[in-house]
Amino acid sequence: MPLLLEIKDLITAFDTAQGRLKAVDGVSLKIKSGETMGIVGESGCGKTMLALSIMRLIPANGRIINGEILFSGRDLLKISAEEMRAKRGSEISMIFQEPMTSLNPVFRVGEQIAEAIRLHQHLPAKKAMELSVEQLREVGISDPQKRAQDYPHNLSGGMRQRVMIAMAMSCYPKLLLADEPTTALDVTIQAQILDLISNLKQKNKMTVVLITHDLGVIAQAAQKVAVMYAGKIVESSAVEEIFANPLHPYTQGLLESIPARCGQSLERGGYLKTIPGSVPSLYNIAPGCRFYDRCSYADEECSGKEPPLEEINPSHFVSCWKYGAKKNN
């Protein structure tokens, strides 16, 4: 499969009163056409900023100061604002965590979907509205003709997220960025939405970047996964590999801290393993490994120099001195 998206050494920084903060700090990522890439990490690790950087929608005080984002071979950071606007919503779409705040409360949902179709496909209003109803049917909304006339507040959380997906899918994008699409939803609705995304992906031969903090969602819905920590990718591989053989101490810690992981029988009175401490502040990053003060394997070498992301096993990349460089010494 050819590459659809290649990110090279991307740095997205924010200039704030407390100084410069690199939310995304040297991320490189390759995503093949047709695959689902999961990006997992805790809050503040930069996963949303990575997605917004791809969309070139980072907040006003932020800037992409380094790197390339190659989409079908073209660098999105070099094209004009108009060109980028034409790509957004037609070739690259994004769905957000909170469907209530991302829909406009004063327009009917049908009109909101039709707007995207009108703008990108230059169709007359009536035709666009017909396609909009068709999209609502596609995402499993019953009685779409009638629902199209509803306002967002008439719909439940799951229905709103379906509307968001219908809007994102309306121009059949090549790439869908889904930022925590199910976090605000109940588990039963989450299962339905994940199913829907995977069906639409198959049907439209779409590529998906699925951003989540939930490793269970990754295991069920993604083929590849990248783990982010404090603005960097610390491990990436195929999904089966990372769950069977997690290499980075942070990934290992994350997996162990899930209660009742994999439905394993949990000993009564047993304790969960935890990662001590909390995520470091991005304002003053110390030299060396970012996971240094939370890591039980850390030694002197780790505090001095930042480990590079290296291929340890075929297609399994880890950024940790425990492997690779150190091993060869």
Partner: peptide, 14 residues
């Protein structure tokens, strides 16, 4: 239904 909706952390068991 609730139990079956919880995503399992085992990708082998999609």
């Amino acid at each position: 239904m609730l139990l079956s909706a919880v995503p399992s952390c085992d990708p082998q068991k999609k």
